[in-house]
Design a binder for these strands. Structure first.
Lengths: 249, 249
DNA sequence: TGAAATTTTGCCGCTTTTTGCATTTTAATC
DNA sequence: GATTAAAATGCAAAAAGCGGCAAAATTTCA
């Protein structure tokens, strides 16, 4: 990786997450921490970020009085996104839906990951587009302004032409009895096509949507391979799902 | 391999992968690294790429990661965008390419316009998506990180299923004798498909690209219906094109 | 066509940049 | 205040850049 390329990536990460850790960057980009430190120093001098102990902060967080506290705190969707991103390995074909949780996953993809991501979600595509090594395939069709994903028969037909390794879905409701449910019929058609096409289905959701129901059914629990929430996998709320045969993370 | 040929190859590689390494190019093309370095230097001076230690990066990459950089001749492009936007009427089906000029047009679309816009350009789609009344159809395929548009046979096939009223293209070079030319072969394939599919072709360009030539041919002048620049239509630079049968605006 | 002029290319020695490692110094945490 | 992690410092190896030069290739022009 070229020096400029590396520094550009660091700036990008800082702008996305408002913080970066030296050791994380070091292992992601696979250079020594000394190099990262020198990069952060240069970027600080250029005013691209603010260097602090252990990493760097974005200018947006300039007025934070205790940056070290901010550096280690993360919200639920970031945690989910990071857990999810770890499942993607080099060379994989990955189908993803839309939604804020998926965006967080996209932002957590390590710099050295080289995979092919397929999506009809415009915000997700924009994120993937910024990644240095990821190949992006866009699912085309009519764009829904609400969900910001492409919807329709062409999109479904296109999804069916792939056989991706993984499928990541942000879900709106999951229940032991009723399975995964959602509110928008058209979006559900896409999700069903994605589930059927993929070898492994991974659902992402914040814990407050667990044990809730929405009007339109997406699929039964047995279609889901992995469920990711911000909770630790031992949490009692998740146990019934584990017992139902889903890998909880 | 001729020098021109070699440099064209390098530009293509940069556009394709967003970066090139000197030593890779050297062994690929089988010339010394000194020659590659001189090539990169020349191409940098011509603005085709950005030379860095160990290789070169594409301009698009630089734009993405250093958004502070001001878009070149923004004001001219705004004028062009406004002229172009006035051509779109309620109920029309409009096909558009990518590029900064098209983005300016997208931003100039009046809020009460209700039309259907079709595009494979992610930045353009993002703009259309924010418009209250416009229907957006996304052309899907593999996403080129350099041009930020979808490229490939699927995209071309999809374009051919439409018969839009208008087609807006941002062009990189136009000349009386050689017609419209461009630098990237894959992008040209898409542009040609768009031109053939559409009932009316409108080309947008800043005046400094008039009477310039790029290596890959897009189409002859007779395919173009309207040419829009930031200049007034009476400007002498535009007269030869008006005489060639093109409506200049 | 063929010779001169020009451009292009590869090589050489030398300088600069980049990077990782070892060591010392500084800062953070409990 | 002891322990630990990160920063700064110095250093050396490797890689890349640079200017000059001469051979090779290409173009120009008589």
């Amino acid at each position: 990786m070229l020096k400029r390329e590396r520094q550009a990536y660091i700036v990008h990460q800082v702008n996305l997450h408002n913080k970066v850790l030296s050791n994380t960057l070091s292992s992601e980009i696979d250079v020594s921490e000394d190099t990262i430190r020198r990069d952060l120093q240069e970027l600080d001098e250029k005013g691209k970020l603010i260097k602090v102990h252990g990493g760097a902060l974005s200018h947006a967080f300039h007025d934070i009085t205790y940056p070290s506290k901010k550096i280690y705190s993360q919200d639920s969707k970031k945690i989910i996104g990071e857990k999810a991103a770890r499942l993607i390995k080099d060379g994989m074909f990955v189908l993803t839906g839309g939604g804020t949780t998926i965006i967080e996953m996209a932002r957590s993809l390590p710099a050295n990951l080289s995979a092919t991501l397929i999506s009809g979600s415009i915000p997700a595509v924009v994120e993937y587009m910024h990644h240095p090594m990821i190949e992006v395939i866009v699912i085309g069709d009519k764009l829904s302004k609400n969900s910001k994903i492409t919807l329709g028969t062409h999109a479904i037909a296109k999804i069916n032409t792939f056989k991706p390794d993984l499928c990541f879905l942000g879900i709106n409701a999951i229940d032991l009895k009723y399975g995964v449910t959602d509110s928008d019929w058209d979006v559900v058609q896409i999700k069903q096509a994605m589930i059927e096409a993929s070898q492994k289905v991974i659902c992402l959701t914040i814990s407050e949507k667990i044990n809730t129901i929405q009007p339109v059914k997406v699929c039964n629990l047995n279609k889901i391979d992995i469920l990711i929430t911000e909770l630790p996998k031992e949490h009692p709320l998740l146990q019934p799902y584990a017992e139902a045969g889903i890998t909880v993370m």
